[in-house]
Design a protein around this nucleic acid. Structure first.
Lengths: 141, 141
DNA sequence: GTACCTGCAAAAGTTTTGCGTGTCT
DNA sequence: AGACACGCAAAACTTTTGCAGGTAC
């Protein structure tokens, strides 16, 4: 009783959305992808962008990151994590070791770990500097 | 120019919501907290539950975990992480080492790390067992 | 030709908010 | 008394979905 695999079609919409995500290095939301895709294909609809993004994610061609309950997308699919700046909202890639030790500890409980997601929150270097200056000023005043 | 700190009041609603979260060990959603709170205080509204939960989180008295773009709440506020079962949806606490090495690597980039969030996705022990059995059957048939 | 995909618009689901009233201090 | 909080309902926002027409293969 295997599920029948539907034959996927190649459409302009899919190609454009995929290319937009690959070309974007700022982890755009669906809305942002939509804006950018429209420059290439002005008739594309937001609904289609959502459908294509979901399809690309499930095919493993792109990755989804959820920040503030909103989906963001990226073309990188290798193992890495994210830092989110609480000041400017920017999402930046973070390279970390695989942390096998941590996963082991989880698996020792009988869990099957299929995916791991690390998120670091705080201030990016630019905002840290900016706020550092503000704090100094505040102290002086 | 310091912001005026509003004096917080003690109301029945706040006490009940807080107690519900403290007594719950299954990471309830706002809706679930609402259901449970109503048993104690039938006139409480969902809006108030949302407002109180947000306040408790910002006071650091409870913690918020976002899973599937939906907020869940817990009374534990010490350092720990979460495992989410893709099969039954259960959220379980996970004790992990502080992973200072990983944070250090992030801070080396000039970032100020204020909070860290690890999420592990996969199958809890119960579901892993259940699905293991199913797979065996499938193979036999 | 047919199955799949798209655009459009409506619906769904969670969370927030404005407003008038109630209540803590 | 006065500031703050509550209940109610509407609004806000992101994401999903149903449908009729269009398109890839």
């Amino acid at each position: 009783m295997e599920k029948i695999r539907k034959k996927k079609r190649n459409t302009k919409q899919k190609a454009v959305v995929y290319q937009v995500v690959l070309d974007s290095h700022d982890h755009p939301t669906a809305e942002k992808v939509y804006e950018r895709a429209r420059k290439e294909l002005p008739t594309i609809s937001l609904g289609t962008v959502y459908r294509v993004l979901k399809e690309l994610v499930s095919e493993g061609k792109i990755r989804e990151i959820v920040v503030n309950k909103q989906s963001h997308f990226e073309g990188r699919t290798d193992f890495h994590h994210h830092f989110i700046c609480r000041e400017c909202g920017k999402i930046e890639d973070v390279e970390t070791p695989l942390c096998r030790y941590t996963c082991k500890k989880v698996e020792d409980k009988g869990y099957v770990v299929e995916d791991v997601e690390y998120k670091f929150y705080g201030l990016c270097s630019k905002c840290a500097q900016k706020l550092g200056i503000l704090e100094e000023r505040a102290v002086q005043v």
